[in-house]
């Protein structure tokens, strides 16, 4: 079990994602990446990322923002690539050629995780590689120009699910990847948010201290794609949690625990109204989508609380 985290102590540690990367001002991804690396910095860490904003902006030509060993190969295979690295590490360890306790962390966007990367992710988890896979979920393919993904929420306006007078944005719900990963019966699955930094750091710290495959899904606002104010990144992440759109919970060795319960669940409109991608939902003819959105959240939140009560 990981030691209790102290903010004062954490603030002394080196930030392992250096400034100078080309991510947008106000981007949620580097905030999440820095938090993840900070929480794991008790150990030497080897990281991997698939193609995406974080990858392309942190390794311009010969430069890298990563203060740790980091590998990228393609869009669909961060988990496979890191599984290969981890396998080599285990082999070297077995042969006595390496004795360090090294941790392996993949940090990937939702396109490379929910969609094209789910096959390699699922395979790595099922085979039981000792690695942590963190998805920074901003709900679309932001790197290629805001195309819808399997993580894009219902009703969102994207470049490939455009909201018009006939079709009100994305007509499908997002898939619940955290649940899918928990269904792999891996060591540890969790959902986190950069707005609740202590919760996020604890989850990462706990995950890296455990053996076996781990998965953490982190909501990561993108003001470009969400059509929101640059300064609202953390506010939006917080609202996602407070509306229970993004519940903070963990599944540790099969036992579900909700790590944050808002005293008062805010209506989803508070999350939606700050984002231009949902602007059209507030037109009278699209009210049903907001209603549907709220019903889905309520049902899932109740289900989660029930699931937790099974182990109470």
């Amino acid at each position: 079990m990981a030691a209790e985290l102290q903010l004062k102590e954490l603030a002394q540690r080196k930030v392992l994602l250096a400034p100078g990367h080309r991510l947008c001002a106000g981007c949620g991804a580097p905030i999440v990446a820095k938090m993840v690396l900070l929480a794991a910095s008790d150990y030497p860490v080897v990281a991997a990322s698939p193609t995406g904003c974080l990858e392309v902006s942190t390794c311009i030509s010969d430069y890298t923002a990563w203060e740790i060993p980091w590998i990228h190969s393609a869009f669909e295979n961060a988990a496979a690539t890191l599984a290969g690295v981890e396998t080599m590490y285990r082999a070297l360890k077995k042969k006595g050629k390496i004795d360090k306790e090294i941790k392996f962390i993949a940090i990937a966007g939702d396109g490379g995780t929910y969609d094209i990367g789910i096959q390699s992710l699922s395979g790595a988890m099922e085979r039981g590689h000792d690695l942590l896979y963190v998805c920074y979920d901003n709900g679309a393919y932001m790197n290629t120009g805001i195309q819808r993904s399997g993580a894009t929420p219902l009703g969102a306006d994207t470049t490939t699910s455009p909201a018009g007078s006939v079709i009100p944005g994305k007509t499908q719900r997002r898939k619940d990847l955290t649940k899918i990963m928990a269904a792999h019966n891996i060591t540890y699955t969790a959902q986190a948010s950069p707005s609740h930094w202590s919760d996020l750091l604890k989850k990462v710290s706990k995950a890296v201290s455990m053996k076996g495959p781990k998965f953490i899904n982190v909501i990561t606002p993108c003001h470009r794609g969400w059509r929101a104010r640059v300064e609202d990144t953390i506010l939006l992440a917080r609202l996602a949690v407070q509306t229970c759109y993004w519940p903070l919970y963990e599944v540790e060795n099969g036992i579900t625990r909700v790590t944050y319960k808002p005293r008062e669940k805010k209506p989803i409109e508070e999350f939606l109204k700050l984002q231009g991608r949902f602007k059209h939902l507030f037109a009278p003819e699209n009210e049903w989508i907001i209603k549907q959105f709220q019903e889905d959240i309520d049902r899932e939140w109740e289900r989660l609380l029930k699931e937790e009560s099974l182990y109470a």
């Binding site: 490939t160 699910s161 455009p162």
Partner: peptide
């Protein structure tokens, strides 16, 4: 039937609106 990748993404963007 498509998938995002630069530098062709404007093509699916166009057809996402045009096909309907």
């Amino acid at each position: 039937f498509g998938y995002p990748i630069t530098p062709q993404s404007e093509l699916p963007h166009y057809l996402a609106r045009r096909m309907p």
